[in-house]
Design a protein around this nucleic acid. Structure first.
Lengths: 133, 133
DNA sequence: CTATCTGCAAACGTTTTGCAGATGT
DNA sequence: ACATCTGCAAAACGTTTGCAGATAG
């Protein structure tokens, strides 16, 4: 049996559940904080380790913010953003604005595609104006 | 005059030149190291500060690796990758495999698009096999 | 009883910041 | 002079790792 796509542990289920419950993406820190308020507190280390597992299983997608932190969401959630390179302001796009033409096959002998990230960077309305910080 | 798209300094020109000269993407550390060997040594802080400027000017694109480090390349270079979520191995795609359909206008009142990043994540050939670390 | 999972504390490594001195207009 | 740019050293920060103890099958 492939070590990926196997059963997941209680803790991993809990994390996935929390991600699905939330409409947004969450960081490891977010999840840790949020679970501490609930009856399923778990250490930060555990949160990070299990998130990695969930990504490798193909159940969770991850994305790196310009700040260096990582945000997680269920794989099936297809979120993309406009991000201002000056002020960092982010606008969410609720559908993927590109049409895949030559995407790698979802499942080929060479590469099993789990998810993609697509982010747009530029200057937001405020920052386009002259005299901005 | 808009503070973006204005003239750039010698140091910034040097960084841009170095990025153009290289076929790959480079990190701040890479650039710093590389310039130290040349006649244009500059401090790490300066490298980072000027790279930020170049990104805001729309001359350079940046992309965050899963490791947290940031890679830079000239904006016009349209590179995308397949990355294995297990071992981190990366394969480069030399053309953008998606067709923009509803991309934000390159230049609108609301948002001035400078570049986009598109990365694919999944499992590489090696890691798909059972019994992998 | 062996393998896996956990959590704490310490480490990591890249990037950022404070500040004083250099540079240049 | 005045604003900008630089570099050093220290800080910052989310994340990762070592290890010993807990848990589970």
């Amino acid at each position: 049996m492939n070590k990926f796509h196997s059963e997941i542990t209680k803790r991993q289920q809990r994390l996935l559940e929390e991600l699905k419950k939330c409409d947004d993406e969450l960081s490891g820190q977010d999840l840790h904080r949020q679970l501490y308020k609930s009856d399923n507190a778990m250490g930060l280390t555990t949160v990070y380790r299990n998130l990695q597992v969930l990504v490798k299983q193909g159940l969770v997608r991850s994305r790196h913010l310009p700040t260096g932190e990582v945000l997680y969401a269920p794989v099936e959630r297809d979120i993309h953003h406009l991000t201002c390179v000056n002020c960092g302001e982010t606008t969410r796009l609720n559908s993927c604005p590109v049409k895949p033409i030559n995407l790698p096959n979802k499942k080929s002998k060479d590469f099993e595609l789990l998810f993609h990230t697509l982010e747009f960077f530029g200057l937001c309305q405020n920052c386009i104006k002259p005299d901005n910080a």
